[in-house]
Amino acid sequence: MSEVAFTDANFQAEVLEEKNKPVLVDFWASWCGPCKMQGPIVDEVAKEMEGKAKVGKLEVDQNPGTAQQYQVMSIPTIVIFKGGKPVWNATGVQQKEKLISELKNLL
């Protein structure tokens, strides 16, 4: 599977210390209707960008530390990191093409 489950515990290693590829993080929760629409779109982005970008999800209920650190106040929120820094973010359901084009801009 190309998609990664990010957590408070692995965020540093998986996201912040990823030197080469851009990393897309989908902040979501099971109670959030729109997140259930975003999920499958992110799965497709992960498949399409396999090898070029790291794509994954972070469940905010289980991992409140990271959500708080990046001031996630509405979900779904997507943040793209490059070189350990957040470089792009958007709130609300995002379409596949948009996410892929944002990732490609960072390659």
């Binding site: 109670w31 209707g33 729109p34 905010v60 959500a67 996630v72 106040m73 979900i75």
Partner: peptide, 11 residues
């Protein structure tokens, strides 16, 4: 925010 169900738990 306009969706309390989505976002309330973040507060």
């Amino acid at each position: 925010t306009y969706c309390a169900t989505c976002d309330a738990p973040l507060y």
